[in-house]
């Protein structure tokens, strides 16, 4: 699949992060991060451990516990930071977690239908009944190569690391968000799983949808070819380029990156 380079540079950004400063427990993690993402684009974010990639992902999704001390985030023109996490999700924002939680006793499909219907309700659409939903979820499970027996189990209950990651992508495929943030979805996936999951993600690529893909490895970007690659270091984007930047990093590491 070829990257979509035709996203109009003149269209209003889907996501616009400006000079974002974020603290956790009084410690500044993001120190003036700026990022602009337009519909149709795929952005890869790379960077050393602890540089603030997950913090950025969490801030976008609205996780409690972070303090924004400066800067702004706009999502198709709206002040994203003013919205509750569920409002962001209903408005098409999706985060595939680096560490998905296990919720014993909440069946995977049951929860996913609740989520789907909350979003449909927000969109003024009719709720989907259990039978129709099951058909849909089975189709999407096949798309991401997930065995049907995982559908009735508790959310991530007893799933292996890779199975949890697949489950995140299943949720994404079902909920069809507008902005997908994938936080190290490739970690924990075996080579075949990586390919299936990447194919699943590629099928979701569209001119209306944008993706922000956090990863440490070039191999994911062989499958999901990005339009832009950014290096996040010390709480800031220190370098941006096209897909060749990822190859460069793979060879020489972050040490050589100059702001």
């Amino acid at each position: 699949m070829s990257p979509n380079n035709h996203a109009s540079k003149t269209s209003a950004p889907l996501l616009e992060v400006k000079d974002l400063h974020v603290e956790v427990n009084g410690k500044e993690i993001l120190k003036g991060l700026s990022l602009t993402v337009r519909a149709g684009e795929v952005h890869a974010i790379m960077g050393p451990n602890g540089s603030g990639k997950s913090t950025l992902a969490h801030i976008l999704a609205g996780r409690p516990g972070y303090t924004v001390t400066k800067g702004s985030v706009h999502y198709h023109g709206k002040d994203l930071l003013a919205l509750e996490p569920e409002e962001r999700a209903r408005d098409g924002l999706f985060l595939a977690f680096q560490y998905p939680v296990e919720i014993a006793g909440v069946a995977n499909t049951y929860f996913l239908r609740e989520a789907m219907n909350a979003i449909r309700k927000h969109q003024g659409k009719e709720e989907m009944d259990a039978v129709d939903f099951l058909d849909l979820v089975k189709e999407k499970a096949a798309l991401v190569g997930m065995d049907e027996r995982f559908l009735t189990r508790g959310v991530n209950e007893g799933f292996s690391g890779g199975e949890k990651k697949r489950n995140e992508i299943l949720q994404m495929a079902v909920l069809e968000p507008r902005l997908c943030v994938l936080d190290e979805t490739d970690s924990g996936l075996d080579i075949d799983a990586l390919r299936t999951v990447a194919e699943g993600v590629n099928k979701l690529r569209s001119p209306e949808r944008a993706m922000v893909v956090v990863t440490h490895y070039q191999r994911l970007l062989d499958h999901i070819v990005p339009d832009f690659v950014h290096v996040l270091q010390g709480g800031r984007i220190v370098k941006s380029g096209d897909k060749r930047l990822a190859l460069e990093l793979e060879k020489s590491g972050y040490e050589t990156v100059k702001a």
Partner: peptide
């Protein structure tokens, strides 16, 4: 669990329905 609650909310489920889901899971 605050993590579980945030996860459910991040999928579009409101605070009360999310708490209900988790309470049902507890009583399951």
């Amino acid at each position: 669990s605050a993590d579980a609650l945030f996860f459910l909310r991040s999928r579009g489920i409101g605070v009360e329905p999310a708490k209900l889901l988790l309470t049902q899971a507890f009583a399951h």
